[in-house]
Structure formats: structure tokens, C-alpha cells
């Protein structure tokens, strides 16, 4: 459990975790999230239920190395560390939004075709890795992408979103899933959505 001085941030993690679960952006036990405070990280416990986080589900660890309860922290803690070291992010949400994952399997970028989506996100790159979770390759590649995008998709796996606040990362995650749902529904009508990817989004 994290130090009591991080109470405000712990409550925020519980609040955002609940929304991430209720919105279907993760299943009961999937995904993880963290916040950075100086050289410290608060991260959700491995296998914890994001929708029902308790104090003991939030683990405090160092930015540089494991120094407390690391065997309990998410298996992806190394990726979180790499992102914090490679970007100015103060919060990370890793989620498994179903429709966005479906799209990531069949295409190498997700471009919004709806107005609201294009307002916040111009393009979400889809990155392919040989090994799915917590790999060295991910630690090297993800921060590079997140220097340029607030949210990226790992092919067939899930999304990583960053922000100064958890709520910001949540927002991007939500927008991505909405974009994916709209794209999917238009395609379900038998229409090629590429024609709606306004040419100028690629200029972004």
C-alpha cells in the first residue's frame, strides 16, 4: 500500500479505475494504471480489479528501480517506468477497449471519421510487437511513440494513454473506443469508412 501522504492520488486512482471498468474499457481484472509523483510511482497491483480498487491494491515504487512491494505491482511496471522516463507524462492508463483492439488487428492506424473524435484525436498509431506484454521491446518503442501521441494502440492487445492527470488519459482512452465503435458500425452497414477519413487528418 502506498504512503498515506498520497491519499488524494489514491482516491483519484479508485475513481478513475471505477469509470474505466464501468465503461467497458477493461474487463474485471485486466489493465493497469499509474501516476508519477517526483521520483515515485503509484501503480495498481498485479491482477487487481480496477473497478473496485482498495488501498492495498495501490503499490508505491521508485521511478528508477524496484524498492517496495514490486512482486505485487503490475507486470507492466517496467513499461510504465520507461514511459515516465521517456516522456513528461504524470499518469498512464493501460486498457483493453474491445472495438479498438478489433480494429488494431486489421489495420495499422486508427483515424477518426466522426467530428467529436477528430476534435481530440487525429490519428492513433498501431504498433506491432513480437511479444505481447511487458517485453523489453515495448519498453524501448512505446515511449518513442508517446512522445508524439497521447494514446497509442498495441496491435491485438490494448491501448496506452498518457496525460498530466489520470482523467486526461481516461478521456483519450474513451475517445479512442468511441472512434472505433463508430468506424465499426459504419462498416457494418457495408460501407468503406476510408472515404470518410478526411484527407487533411493525415496532415496532422
Amino acid at each position: 500500500m502506498a504512503s498515506e501522504k498520497y491519499r488524494e492520488l489514491m482516491e483519484e486512482m479508485k475513481r478513475i479505475g471505477r469509470i474505466v471498468f464501468q465503461a467497458g474499457l477493461n474487463n474485471s481484472h485486466s489493465g493497469n494504471m499509474s501516476v508519477r509523483v517526483g521520483r515515485r510511482i503509484l501503480i495498481t497491483r498485479r491482477g487487481s480489479m480496477l473497478g473496485f480498487l482498495k488501498d492495498e491494491d495501490i503499490i508505491e515504487t521508485g521511478l528508477e528501480q524496484d524498492d517496495s512491494g514490486i512482486s505485487l505491482a503490475s507486470t507492466e511496471v517496467a513499461v510504465h517506468r520507461a514511459i515516465y522516463k521517456g516522456t513528461s507524462a504524470l499518469a498512464i492508463i493501460h486498457s483493453h477497449p474491445i472495438t479498438a483492439i478489433a480494429l488494431s488487428i486489421v489495420q495499422d492506424e486508427i483515424v477518426p471519421i466522426d467530428v467529436e473524435g477528430s476534435y481530440y484525436i487525429r490519428r492513433v498509431p498501431v504498433i506491432e510487437f513480437e511479444f505481447g506484454t511487458g517485453s523489453k521491446e515495448m519498453e524501448e518503442v512505446l515511449p518513442k511513440y508517446l512522445k508524439n501521441y497521447r494514446i497509442v494502440m498495441v496491435k491485438g492487445h490494448g491501448a496506452f494513454a498518457i496525460g498530466d492527470f489520470l482523467e486526461e488519459a481516461l478521456h483519450y482512452t474513451h475517445v479512442l473506443e468511441n472512434i472505433a465503435q463508430i468506424t465499426w458500425r459504419v462498416r457494418a452497414m457495408g460501407i468503406d469508412t476510408r472515404q470518410f477519413e478526411r484527407e487533411y487528418f493525415h496532415k496532422w
Binding site: K5, Y6, E8, L9, V35, R36, V37, G38, L90, D164, F165, E167, E168
Partner: peptide
Amino acid sequence: PRMIDRFSAVGKGSH
């Protein structure tokens, strides 16, 4: 862009 607790000293260094 978001409200943070103005009375808290935690996390303010990063922001």
C-alpha cells in the same frame, strides 16, 4: 486543464 487540490502539497513538484 483539470482541478487539483490546492491545499495539498503532494505532487505539486511535478506539475
